[in-house]
Amino acid sequence: MSAAPRHFEIEQAGEAWRQLNNPGSSQQIKEARFQLPAWYRHDLDPLGTPYRDQQLALWRAITGRSDYQPDRDEETPEVARLDPIRRPGLYSANDAMVAGDHLMAMGHILKISGLTARQRPRILEYGAGFGQIALTFARIGFSVETVDISAHYCNAVAASSEHYKVDLTPYIGTFGYNPAGQSHAYDLVFFYESFHHCLDFQSLVHRLAELLKPGGKVLLAGEPIVTNAPDIMPYPWGIRLDGENIAVTHARGWMELGFQEEFLVRLFETAGFRFAKHPCVNSHYATVYEFVRPE
């Protein structure tokens, strides 16, 4: 019988980070949960500005930083040390299970995209990181653009593009930036482990409808979208309260949000999308949320 998870106060985020890096206590922190501070209000409208401001206040309490700036707080400088061709992120974790999760997710995204070269599709990935899925689409023969706030990640994508001589172009930019410069240019916009870093996801969802061609789709995978996890996600959306996430947020400053599935799906449907869920029993990273913009 496993022990009940430990509960921490937000003020203990730094201590959680230290314990996470200690092999003796690492697992305990991963299973731990954080409690919301006493000042947190549960009666706010999740679509309203006060709710968003309250989440930012929670982020400040966890990180000790004064204001959230994605170009600074979402940075991953160690990426510059990795070889983007031979050992991009999914391989450099030195863990077959990690690589397997990512590769299954990649396969599922590719398959559910339903695209063929005959359609000459144009694809956009937000928060692409090393852009391995984008690269695979490009190697099939599609035109692919990526947007990431990190210049280091974009540089890695540029290196892959040059190495494989494919139509893959990275842009340094924020969520919602449109490299095409015109509306309704894309057949597919996808996010892999990135949508949950977007604080202004509400406006982004509406923006996605503008980016897509009629019949185009948005795919989300590897996202913390939960159906019943009140200890981690006790609100429609917000910072995830599991121990590892709070510890990492404290140390890195990343915006690590999560979503209740019902809330997020309704948001997309309100923006005019049609929803389908493609679960994967082998890896939750490969569960794909598909949102189609009607013809």
């Binding site: 700036q69 170009d71 210049a151 540089n155 994508v157 172009t169 340094i172």
Partner: peptide, 23 residues
């Protein structure tokens, strides 16, 4: 490449910056 990336990082983040490389 490296110095261009440093320069790119110094530009304001709201700008979309397309990156390419000629090896």
């Amino acid at each position: 490449v490296d110095t261009d990336i440093a320069l790119a990082r110094s530009l304001r983040p709201a700008v979309g910056i397309r990156l390419d490389r000629i090896e």
